[in-house]
Nucleic acid binder design. Structure first.
Lengths: 322, 322
DNA sequence: CTGTTAGCGCTTTCAG
DNA sequence: CTGAAAGCGCTAACAG
């Protein structure tokens, strides 16, 4: 019995001949190692958890793929859970993952409060924050600089000559979405404009493209003076907005300029092609997984990895009319 | 000790007062159940595995979300693995999942041969096939009828008057992609055309949109007589093709009609908007998970669930010139 | 209701 | 190299 165990875990301690005999006995009887029992004996878990706002969202799907690929190198698999931005679900998933003794969790937290995550870490489960840095570097984090992203988008519009902007954002107070608003405000102030006057926030609640289109267009056109440039918090919203504006016969970028966020595959192919902020999503996931795995090293120190977004200028933005 | 166990597993056998005492002792010390130990004692695993061609692909992301939601109802989580259409990876992931004693696996198999999956099932791990029905119903399967999908797309073009078609497909012999080719052939024969003459297959190997665009356009234009209608095996390829044709100044649908596959969010928003075959992806995942969970019922019989695709007619298709 | 006990499959240690 | 034994945390069965 101990020889078999050695064949599996310390192959070099076993004579080649013996090892061979054990190995083909194994596949004669179809032996499969029992992970639960190993883990109970103290072996590190080979499962990592990942709690995201919505795993079907292409942004998170790409991020998760980055995570998955890095974990594969370490022989680990990834459990993916969606919260749909609900704190109760986040808590429930984290509990389940903790019970499964996962090797660690990557979390895109629903709210800015991360006490429960700090507690989870203190309890022995490594945690890496995504999209949101912890307050005092008490947790590892990997983020794209959303403030910078919002700033890039807004500055681009300001440079083109726009003076009244809108930000079409999800109604839920997701940290990354809020940070982009902050970046937009920063760009406005740098241009000596008062965000209270020069910026309209339009909140999107709809689920379908059509609903979103209606909401955003209504929010924009209902405002006087009408904004001439819009930053959308993601490309899906920009897509909906472009449709809504086309249906109303409003020219883009002639009457209104539109900036997206994410640079999904289709952004470059729309007509007009979409100016948008690209995020290094896959790399972010890869690096985050790397960070998580490194928590097992003896002298681990928490780190915050910050990735830079990049503005992709295309045809949906131009100088304002008049 | 057994009382504690009962509080967790048979709460009604314990007096309310005692239960309460146990419960707050638990959260005073921060007790967390050990899943590995439970499982070792025979509790059913709460982890389900899912091995897909590429988890970052929006098609699979939506499918996985359907799976995830159904599993959540049963208190289970989903591990997602990507094979990138490589048989060795598929085998490796399945092995790992088997060692983790997962409750079951959903697999979108790399090849038509599923012996290893039948063997896995025989060994005690429930298996549900995705995108591919097993030969003799020896495994559960949930599929969208890809033959019907290919047929829908081709018949639409034939009805418009096209007589020379192309099929732009992934070079790898993925079952679902091949089935669509079969459907196209069937539609051609139904219209009394010989697929050998009336159909060109263009194989796509590129990874980036630009490469794909080049390949497909070259494949199409290099053929005499030139096809007037193209079915793409997915929307991403159609997107690339539209770009390629636009760059060459070829009118869609004026000179060439294009049909996509998947009906991703952006399909309706392109210019021209994309005629494409919609698949009930989320529902497929949901139903597949349901099937998997049902394997635990005593009198389970393997079933094959077939979902119907739907043609979304938009502006990228029209009557051929001349 | 509480305490005791056995044992799930594995790794580790120690003797032979 | 092989055999024996302990114990990871839990559940189930049973006696008090």
């Amino acid at each position: 019995m101990s020889t078999v165990s050695n064949v599996l875990n310390n192959p070099d301690r076993v004579a080649t001949e013996t090892r061979r005999r054990v190995e083909d006995a194994m596949d004669r009887v179809g032996y499969v190692r029992n992970g639960a029992a190993r883990q109970l004996r103290g072996a590190p878990s080979r499962v990592v958890g990942c709690v995201l706002l919505d795993t079907a969202n292409p942004y998170y799907a790409a991020l998760a793929r980055g995570v998955e690929d890095r974990l594969a190198e370490a022989g680990c698999v990834l459990v993916q859970c969606s919260t749909d931005v609900r704190a109760d679900r986040e808590a429930q998933w984290l509990r389940l993952l903790q019970e499964q003794n996962v090797r660690g969790v990557l979390v895109s937290p629903v709210s800015a409060r991360v006490d429960h995550l700090t507690a989870l870490r203190a309890h022995g489960t490594p945690v890496v924050l995504l999209d949101r840095a912890g307050a005092n570097a008490e947790l590892c984090a990997a983020v794209v600089d959303n403030v910078a992203g919002g700033e890039l988008a807004a500055r681009h519009l300001l440079d083109l000559g726009h003076r009244r902007l809108a930000y079409a954002r999800a109604a839920t107070p997701v940290p990354s979405v809020t940070a982009r608003a902050e970046g937009i405000g920063r760009a406005l102030r740098a241009a000596r404009l008062d965000p209270a006057e020069a910026l309209v926030e339009v909140r999107v609640t709809g689920a379908s493209t059509d609903e979103v289109a209606r909401e955003v267009v209504a929010g924009l056109l209902g405002h006087r003076p009408r904004p001439t440039g819009v930053v959308c918090f993601n490309d899906a919203t920009a897509l909906a907005l472009l449709r809504g504006l086309r249906q109303r016969g409003i020219a883009v970028p002639g009457e209104i300029s539109v900036v997206g966020y994410d640079d999904l595959d289709f952004a470059a192919e729309l007509s007009p092609s979409l100016t948008t902020v690209r995020q290094p999503t896959y790399q972010l996931g890869h690096a985050a997984a790397d960070l998580l795995l490194s928590e097992y090293h003896p002298h681990h120190r928490h780190q915050r990895l910050v990735f830079a977004p990049e503005l992709m200028v295309r045809d949906s933005t131009g100088a304002p009319a008049g």
